[in-house]
Computed example of a mutant assay.
Amino acid sequence: MTALVRTAAELAALEHTGRRAVVMTMGALHEGHATLIRTARELAGPEGQVVVTVFVNPLQFGAGEDLDRYPRTLDADRAIAERAGADAVFAPSVDEVYPGGEPQVRVTAGPMGELLEGAARPGHFDGMLTVVAKLLHLSAPDVALYGQKDAQQLALIRRMVRDLNFPVEIVGVPTVREDDGLALSSRNRYLEPAERTAARALSRALFAARDRLAAEHALLARATAGGAAAARADALTAI
């Protein structure tokens, strides 16, 4: 059975011989998280260890956001993690992660954290990077996996690991979508039917842009190939 550990000391006491792969989550696990865990299992191998962290990080929630009502489903999360191949779930309390209260020293996302989502959520990425840094130190993984759905988050984690010389490999895992194209997210349960319909417009726009770009590249390649063929024909004629 997948072990449940609550403290940094218990996590440090978990024995492993091969690679350790870590999947960081805020809980309310779904198939997207399960895909991350299964990928982690493949990367760790049969002799390695897969640890899933479940922690709702207060530092990355702004005023008026959903910290208090964010879904907390640890028993179900542990069951999903076990089915996907996790060896342990690390579910610390806020006091365990931030003993003595909110940390005075934090990781700053810098200019990358002020763009896009960061422009609408000041301080969000500082809080996210701070907890990721702490969890990387506590779990000491060889590889850590994150979903490509949160593209800006993934880019910032990779930049932090590079800039601060964390000894860990960061792996991005492709987005898992529902049948209607909506990316799987723990917060999807908040959506009313009309909001869900509106949310699908984003994935449709992304796919349309992808298809348009691919078509333009194909046309350019065809035109380039046609021009090259014509040039060769002209050269042969000149001979």
Rank of each mutant, 00 (worst) to 15 (best):
Y190S: 00
V161T: 14
L74C: 09
A225N: 07
D180V: 08
D87N: 14
L164V: 07
D211N: 15
A144K: 03
A221M: 02
A218V: 06
Q60E: 10
E192A: 13
D66G: 09
V23Y: 04
T35I: 04
T237Q: 12
E47W: 11
V107W: 06
R212L: 13
A40K: 03
T175I: 09
F166C: 05
R187M: 06
R212G: 14
R121C: 13
R212I: 09
V171S: 01
G48C: 06
R232L: 13
G45K: 12
L136H: 02
L219N: 04
H33M: 10
L220C: 03
L202V: 15
P174H: 10
L220A: 12
A79S: 08
G118I: 11
T175P: 12
A120W: 14
V54L: 01
A86M: 02
H16N: 03
T224V: 02
L220K: 00
A120H: 15
L4C: 03
A214N: 13
G62D: 08
Y70T: 11
P103E: 07
A3P: 01
H30W: 07
A34H: 11
D179E: 14
A12Y: 08
A109G: 05
A235Q: 01
V97W: 08
A218G: 00
V23E: 07
A76D: 14
E42T: 13
A140P: 08
T197W: 08
H33F: 11
V56P: 01
R83M: 03
A229N: 12
R158V: 10
K149C: 14
V132D: 02
E10D: 12
D150A: 09
S185A: 10
A231G: 04
V131L: 02
V168S: 07
